[in-house]
Design a protein around this nucleic acid. Structure first.
Lengths: 165, 165
DNA sequence: AAGATTAGTTAGCATAGCTAACTATCTTCT
DNA sequence: AGAAGATAGTTAGCTATGCTAACTAATCTT
């Protein structure tokens, strides 16, 4: 969001490696990271609006998506995948179950539960995803094709970056 | 919730590029949008962890960032910028004020308030930003410089896309 | 001056995040 | 076998964030 005016550093805390050499990108990796972060925030904030139409909260939607696209999981696995503590996931799962979007089954290990998306859950997920990405797709589609290509390549790069995070 | 339309967008998880076609734009705008969306989610999920170290909630942090990098704003402007309803921003601002990170002043228009980041708020923001993007910056910095340039250009494109959402 | 509009706040509800403490099951070790 | 420990989830209770509806206060319009 800010065009990087780093005129003051109020706190002399853990300074990141700023490369003196700024020829190729003219901006440091930190600046790029910052802009990526900001862009991601604003992107999701916009798309979040459409998510509300699904009648289900963002955490539940996200957890459901893991189950739909990643297959059945135990509560703990799901909590890990969602970077959330077990009690939190416990409640999220309860909500999904209450709405009939997820089913819980017993496993051999009596402590574990297996969470599986129901057909209703799968359907809602696909519809929601469609709706969510709809406006974004329109905006992307409005770009020249060469720019679309640039974006696509960047996403591939980004995935690589995220993996190495 | 009357979901009847069931459009099956194919391919789970990652509908990845077909190697047969060398042109990246052979993917539809929807595919690109979908991948962007997914990447943004995963990126923020990773970075969210560091945000908690600031001792301030994500909404407050984000609002503070707008004030620090964008200058003083009225409550309504801030609510717009954050895509949040006035009552929500009212409470977020109250929290920031309570923590001494933001100051409120009267304006000529007696209905409006002017929210300004305090020096303490500015300092916390810079430190937080630093910490938040630290690992991301490291990952980005690990890329070849040409790729960093690609990312930067893509972010610019992305901002444009977001604005047209 | 009366009415309409605009800016924020208050109240009340739901979701989502956390830690601490608990139950139930499985594993390990003697 | 049986006690001790480890592991999986749940419950209870706190805070933060999101919303709508209804309110107050200030400004603008007629």
């Amino acid at each position: 969001m800010p065009p990087v005016k780093h005129k003051r550093t109020p706190a002399p805390k853990a300074p990141l490696p700023r490369e003196a050499d700024s020829r190729p990108t003219s901006l440091t990796a930190t600046d790029i990271a910052d802009q990526l972060h900001s862009a991601a925030i604003h992107l999701l904030r916009r798309l979040r609006v459409r998510d509300r139409e699904s009648g289900i909260g963002p955490a539940q939607l996200s957890a459901l998506s893991v189950l739909v696209f990643g297959g059945p999981k135990s509560l703990g696995e799901l909590a890990d995948a969602e970077q959330v503590r077990p009690p939190t996931m416990s409640r999220i799962a309860a909500g999904l179950q209450r709405s009939g979007l997820v089913r819980r089954e017993a496993t051999e290990d009596g402590r574990r539960v297996r969470l599986t998306a129901t057909p209703k859950g799968v359907a809602l997920m696909w519809e929601g995803r469609q709706r969510r990405v709809e406006s974004l797709a329109r905006a992307v589609g409005g770009l020249p094709e060469s720019n679309q290509g640039q974006l696509l390549e960047a996403v591939t790069l980004l995935r690589q970056v995220i993996r190495s995070l």
